[in-house]
Write a protein that binds this DNA or RNA. Structure first.
Lengths: 168, 168
DNA sequence: CAAGGTTTTCAGAATTTTTTGAAAATTAAA
DNA sequence: TTTAATTTTCAAAAAATTCTGAAAACCTTG
C-alpha cells in the first residue's frame, strides 16, 4: 500500500473511531492528519487534504487546541499560522483522560453526591434501589477518579511496568 | 429532594453523559431507568416513564440486550415481557469494556497492523512520521488490550486492592 | 385455528449535529 | 494609516441521527 492510501485509511478510520467516543468526526480526522504530519500544517493545508471548508477547519482546530492536543506554532518568515500535534501517544492519552475526567467524571460525581441524599424511607423498595445504584456508581467513580489522577502523573514506562507486574 | 425528582435528574444526566461517550441518549436513559428500578419493567412502563414511543423503546432495549446490560425476564402469570438491568456496577463496567474492546479496539489494531507495512523509503520524512505514529498507537493499543483482558477477568475487590497498592 | 394481545419493523418525520461560505474582525506589512 | 493577507464568526444549509406510529409479524390462549 502506498503512503497516500494508507494515510487516507488511517484518517478515515480515526474519524469513525472518534464518533464512537463522542468526538466529532472531522475533529478526529484533523487530529489524525496532524498526527502523521512531520511538519506543522496551515489551515489551508488541512482544508485541501481533507476537502473541508475554512470555517470547519478553524472551529475544529480551536477545539483540538482547547483539548490540549494541538499547538499553534510560529514559523519564521511565514505570515500564516501553523499547527502541530503532540506526537507522543502516551502524552496524548494522558491529556484526553485529564480533560474527560474534568469535564465529565467530576461533574457526574458531584451530581451523585447530591442525589444520594434523596428524601424518603430508606426501607421503601424504590428509594432503596435508587440509593443503592447511586452509591454503587459513586464508589466506582471515585475509585476511577483516583486511579486516573495517578495515571496522569505517571511516566509511561513506569505505568506499564507496574501494570505488567500486577497483571503478570 | 423527592425520589421522583432525583430519579428524573439521574436519568437525564445519565443520558447526557452517554452522548459524550457515543451512546444514544435514549438508550442511556432507558439504562438509567432500569438501573434504579428494583423490579423488571415492561415496554409500556418505559414508554410511560420516559414519554417515548413504542418503537423507540423496542429498538433501544434490543440494543441494551445486545450490549449484555439488560435481560429479558419472564414473570409468571404475565403475558408481557419484562426487562431487568444488571445492577452490579462493576459487572456493568466490565461488560461495556468487553464489548467496546471487541467492537473498536481490536479492529483498530488490525488496521494498524496493515498500515504499518506501508511501501516506501522509511528514511523519507513523511513515511517515517506515518510509520512512527502507527507504531506508537499500536504499541499502546496492544498494551491496553492486554490490560483490559485481565481486568475483564478480575474480581472487583481484587482489582481495586491491587490498584491501590501500586498507586499507593 | 380464530381472536386478541404483544412485539417488531421501518419509511417518513422530527430533531440534532455538523458544515459551509461570506462577511466581519484581526493582524502584519507597506 | 492604508492595504492586503489571514483568521474568526455565525446564520443558514446540509447531513446525520434519532424518533414516531401504524402496519405487519408473532405469540398465546381459549
Amino acid at each position: 500500500m502506498k503512503l497516500l492510501e494508507a494515510k487516507q485509511q488511517f484518517i478515515s478510520n480515526w474519524g469513525a473511531f472518534g464518533t464512537h467516543w463522542g468526538i466529532n468526526r472531522t475533529m478526529a480526522q484533523i487530529h489524525a492528519l496532524l498526527l502523521v504530519s512531520p511538519d506543522p500544517l496551515t489551515q489551508d493545508d488541512i482544508m485541501e487534504e481533507l476537502d473541508i471548508s475554512r470555517g470547519n477547519v478553524n472551529m475544529n482546530i480551536r477545539e483540538l487546541i482547547n483539548w490540549g492536543l494541538v499547538d499553534r506554532v510560529v514559523v519564521t518568515g511565514e505570515r500564516k499560522e501553523f499547527f502541530l500535534a503532540e506526537k507522543d501517544i502516551w502524552k496524548v492519552v494522558k491529556q484526553i483522560v485529564k480533560e474527560r475526567k474534568k469535564r465529565e467524571l467530576e461533574p457526574m460525581l458531584q451530581l451523585l453526591d447530591k442525589l444520594e441524599n434523596v428524601e424518603g424511607d430508606k426501607k421503601e423498595k424504590n428509594v432503596r434501589a435508587f440509593v443503592d445504584a447511586v452509591i454503587g456508581i459513586k464508589k466506582l467513580g471515585r475509585q476511577a477518579d483516583k486511579t486516573l489522577d495517578t495515571m496522569i502523573k505517571a511516566e509511561e514506562s513506569w505505568f506499564i511496568g507496574a501494570l505488567m507486574k500486577i497483571f503478570k
